[in-house]
Design a protein around this nucleic acid. Sequence first.
DNA 1: GGTGGTACGCACCATAAAGTAAGTACTCGT
DNA 2: ACGAGTACTTACTTTATGGTGCGTACCACC
Lengths: 120, 120
Amino acid sequence: MTENPAPAIRATNVFAANCPSRRVLDHVTSKWGVLVIVALAQSPMRWGALRRRIEGVSEKMLAQTLRTLEADGFVLREAQPTIPPRVDYSLTPLGRSLAARLIPLVTWVGNNADEIVGAH
Amino acid sequence: MTENPAPAIRATNVFAANCPSRRVLDHVTSKWGVLVIVALAQSPMRWGALRRRIEGVSEKMLAQTLRTLEADGFVLREAQPTIPPRVDYSLTPLGRSLAARLIPLVTWVGNNADEIVGAH
DNA sequence: GGTGGTACGCACCATAAAGTAAGTACTCGT
DNA sequence: ACGAGTACTTACTTTATGGTGCGTACCACC
């Protein structure tokens, strides 16, 4: 029998129900998650700047989204113990790698949205 | 007054709250929408095949997702009036264009999911 | 000494999305 | 005549998502 030459990457199957990639995909394609990643890809930002940049996001949702993305290792949170508090958010290398796949998608949607919505 | 030289593409801003691209982005990044698009990019499929391919999707969600994607112009639905019914689904050119941006993302998630989930 | 700014956390309620289960229509095979 | 197969729809329930408002901690400014 031929032995498998140990693949460096273990590709998971998104089509399988119990696959971890399903959960990751949900985080990555979440409503606000996409916008946070893309915003931070343009430049690191403080809490308040993110909130102003991403119109319509509530403080609760922004906090929740940031905590999820931080736990997944996409976003780096740096809090300075100054008064008033100052917290900087930026992408980790993993986050930048993700952003590279997300930005073409968002750009495409931006360019084609009018056509799509008009097609009713 | 200088008249605008009719731009071929009108890029919309996803960061603006009332922008149509927000709605499109939601459809495109919806939980089942991503999987349907990617599945159909591999090959056109009948209803039953899609249902088996995308593990865990309910009939209701599959029908709803397909109707949304069809309305947006990503998916083509071809029903044959035979008994028993036979319905083929495939991507439109617009859908294929979208898939080209979606597949790298899904592939990336598939390759990195283990690392991300393990990083708790 | 009251007000404002920063970056949240928490509790509560409303709504939207998704899951569950069953029903439909029609015909073929047994 | 009964059950299976196809592609759904509908009604009901549960879960997820999102919004509102209040509280916190500390200081700087007026």
